[in-house]
Amino acid sequence: MPGSVSFTPALALASLSGEADADWARAGAEYAGAAFLGGIALDADSRAAARRLVERDRTEFLPADPIPFLDRQFAALADVPIQPAFNVRSATIDPIADAARICRDYDAYLEINAHCRQNELCTVGCGEALLRDDARLADYVDRAADTGVTVGVKVRAEVPGVDLATLTRDLEAAGADFVHVDAMDTESVIAEVVEATDLFVIANNGVRDENTVREYLEYGADAVSVGRPSDNPAVLERVAAAVDRLGDLETARYPRSSDARIR
């Protein structure tokens, strides 16, 4: 349930494919309360897509077997004071359950990737393609939730034909605990999601300073996340300081009754 999601400070490191591993999370633990490792492709089709991405000079995690890779990465964070999570991609449902059980055993969060928009991934039914296939995405969430893991979804705003408020209600009904929203250029979408559900809401995109943190918190986000600059200590220090200063910020403009709030 949403109340199971909690990390302090309310700042997460967002996954960077091929870069966000245990060493990356360890380096950011001084500033952040959670780290979303990955993304990692789990099944044959998503791994083939990831290899095609590497061929055009993108970085990807492509271990021989992704499930033991998750285990090793979590084990490497056993002594790090940060909430671990893993962002995963799969064109089929069974590997989602396998990854969920590993995350569950480490008290880590599982984040289903419905966010990546590269054609290679979307063509095989991963990433953003899942936003347009809400029934299949809900099945992924339901299957993961059945393992007892804390599960959420990384989503993207501004996808034609996708209403995030409706989608997140469906994900909540399927058993999701949180949603990680890349707001793109529509920061106010956070308020729409907050009003629609009791999910724990992590706001992402452009989080760099106190102004951006304040805007997302005023829209009702429970936490914010830093993506590309997550390996930049100067940015992380600035955002962490802003989260600390604004931690008691009233969100009366967009109230809700959820007990999942961490401020």
Score class of each variant (00 low, 15 high):
residue 75 A to R: 08
residue 101 R to K: 14
residue 120 E to F: 05
residue 124 V to R: 06
residue 144 A to V: 03
residue 106 Y to C: 03
residue 118 Q to D: 15
residue 106 Y to T: 03
residue 112 I to C: 10
residue 64 A to L: 13
residue 113 N to T: 05
residue 142 D to S: 15
residue 136 R to P: 03
residue 42 L to T: 07
residue 97 A to K: 11
residue 106 Y to I: 02
residue 38 G to E: 00
residue 93 I to A: 11
residue 42 L to Y: 01
residue 90 S to D: 06
residue 108 A to N: 15
residue 109 Y to M: 15
residue 138 A to W: 00
residue 83 Q to M: 11
residue 78 A to Q: 12
residue 93 I to L: 14
residue 114 A to M: 07
residue 57 D to T: 09
residue 43 D to R: 02
residue 54 V to D: 01
residue 85 A to T: 13
residue 70 L to N: 10
residue 82 I to L: 10
residue 100 A to M: 10
residue 66 P to R: 05
residue 49 A to G: 00
residue 109 Y to W: 15
residue 80 V to G: 03
residue 35 A to W: 04
residue 130 L to C: 03
residue 52 R to I: 01
residue 126 C to F: 05
residue 50 A to M: 02
residue 115 H to I: 06
residue 90 S to C: 10
residue 102 I to T: 11
residue 143 R to G: 02
residue 143 R to T: 13
residue 56 R to H: 13
residue 36 F to H: 01
residue 122 C to V: 08
residue 40 I to M: 03
residue 71 D to S: 08
residue 92 T to M: 09
residue 46 S to A: 13
residue 80 V to S: 08
residue 86 F to I: 15
residue 110 L to Y: 08
residue 36 F to E: 06
residue 40 I to H: 03
residue 48 A to L: 10
residue 76 A to N: 10
residue 48 A to E: 11
residue 78 A to H: 11
residue 101 R to Q: 14
residue 55 E to D: 06
residue 49 A to W: 01
residue 67 I to F: 02
residue 95 P to I: 11
residue 146 D to Q: 13
residue 59 T to V: 11
residue 50 A to Q: 00
residue 100 A to E: 06
residue 41 A to C: 11
residue 141 V to A: 04
residue 116 C to F: 07
residue 78 A to I: 13
residue 44 A to F: 03
residue 98 D to P: 05
residue 128 E to D: 11
residue 92 T to F: 02
residue 115 H to T: 14
residue 96 I to W: 07
residue 95 P to W: 01
residue 54 V to K: 12
residue 107 D to I: 08
residue 124 V to L: 04
residue 69 F to R: 03
residue 61 F to P: 05
residue 59 T to F: 09
residue 141 V to G: 00
residue 79 D to E: 14
residue 50 A to S: 09
